[in-house]
Simulated assay, not measured.
Amino acid sequence: MTSVRIPLYSVDAIAGVVEVYEQISDNDPIAYLEIPNLPKCDGAIYVVGDSMYPLLKSGDIIIYKVLNNIQNILWGEMYLLSIVQDGDAFITVKYVKQSASPGWVTLISYNEHHQPKDFPIESIRFAAHVKASVRINSMG
């Protein structure tokens, strides 16, 4: 059984969201995860927010593989994204689907209280395919 050593990064340590991957790559990991039989991954971060609840809860860890070309998105899959809209940058975890509008994508939350939202595909500055998640149910 093979294990992959995956660096766990702190999003709090990332100053600029637009440069997510560069910032993550330049920061030292806060820990490493080893999970048997996991596909090749580039890193892991903690989830913040409730848009993917109950599938992902705030505090869960997602493990991701960086997408080098946005044109290689697997429609319908879950991604860690850095998006710039009207000069504001943010990180989100969403399902990515093709929009009815050419050149746009629809981001869908698992939490039904969050509405789907369309964004121009060029507003995505960073995308990483979420390959796995880890949940800690008890801290004691």
Rank of each mutant, 00 (worst) to 15 (best):
K131H: 00
Q85F: 10
S123P: 07
H113E: 14
S123A: 12
G76K: 02
N37R: 09
A100Q: 09
I24Q: 02
E19R: 08
A15M: 09
A13D: 09
G76C: 01
P7M: 01
K97N: 13
N72R: 07
L81E: 04
G59W: 03
V105M: 15
T106M: 12
N27A: 04
G43C: 06
L56S: 12
N69Q: 04
I61G: 04
I14E: 03
A44P: 07
K57D: 12
L56V: 10
Y53Q: 13
Y79F: 07
D42N: 15
I24T: 00
H114I: 01
V105N: 11
C41T: 15
I121H: 00
D118S: 15
S51V: 13
A13G: 04
Y79C: 08
H129E: 06
I91G: 08
L55N: 09
V18H: 07
R125K: 15
W104L: 00
D60H: 07
D50K: 14
P29C: 10
L56Q: 14
N72D: 15
S58G: 14
A128I: 00
D86T: 06
P7D: 04
Y53W: 12
A13H: 13
V18R: 13
V96Y: 09
F126V: 00
I83T: 08
A31E: 15
V18Y: 06
P36Y: 10
Q98H: 05
Y21G: 00
I73S: 01
A15S: 10
V11N: 05
D28S: 07
E34P: 00
I108L: 11
L38S: 04
E112L: 15
P54E: 14
V96L: 04
W104D: 04
Y79I: 03
D42Y: 13
N37Y: 14
I124E: 02
I83F: 10
P120R: 15
I70R: 05
D118I: 12
L8M: 06
E34R: 08
L74D: 06
S10R: 01
I62G: 00
P36V: 02
P29K: 08
